[in-house]
Amino acid sequence: MKKWLRENSWRHAIGIFICLFSIFPLYLVVISSFNPSGSLQLTSFIPKVLSWNNYHTLFKSPAIPYLTWMKNSLYIAGSVALISVMIGSAAAFAFSRLNFTGKKLGIQLLLLVQMFPAILAISAVYVIMERVHNFAPDIGLGTQPGLLLVYLGGAMGVNIWLLKGFVDSIPMELDEAAKIDGASAVQTFWLIFVPLAAPVLAVVTLMSFIGTFNEYILARLFLVNMNTRTVAVGLQQFIGGQYSQNWGPFAAGSIIASVPIVIIFLSLQKYIVSGLTAGSVKG
């Protein structure tokens, strides 16, 4: 018993302490979302009265088109995820299975471009899309399709390494068999690769969904109109320094927006962790 204490107690002490550190802000947001007064000030850390007031405000108040924001976020992140996984997997397949001149150079260039943090070119993106707006107001600055296009610019690079690793692991014999049966490369991609890779594609799609859902600055720059905003931009603008007044509805809104993401993340934990050690970085 004594030995157990000596060997394990400090581990539990650290574990509990850091768990408290992790959970504390989240706990605070949850209880303040149920705080009837809706203000940032909490009289105690253990709630005495629970109320749905803040959630009610969130969905009913005309000042916060929260449902529209959620819909926008789901639409943008969903479309980006689906299209970018198609683009990414096609490129990964070609890099893995097809022979063409400049293949190695292509991979290296892609890697190089990837290293350029997108945010550095943000003023150029802004100016270019402003010009696009001059002749095509539907896809330029200030529109969701425009934002979508900008997000898709990075589609080929982002997940290609994960996907290429997976394509590499599919046995060549399958392709060869398909080839003997007369399948073209495009058919091999659709009929062999896509069905086999479906689980991986699903994971990559969801990860890309999380990434886009979480994107702030481009969305902020593009979506000026209240009703086109994503939930991240909408809530940020709503709280905009007015913490003491708008805290309650904000807390409720951030919880509703976060829960699905946290659930997706936790269920994909295994893949994300293995992706981390493969070199992708968040945080």
Binding site: V113, A118, A124, M156, G157
Partner: peptide, 10 residues
């Protein structure tokens, strides 16, 4: 897409 929204902004 890469050319339009990543390379050309760079």
């Amino acid at each position: 897409l890469l050319f339009a929204f990543v390379l050309s902004p760079i």
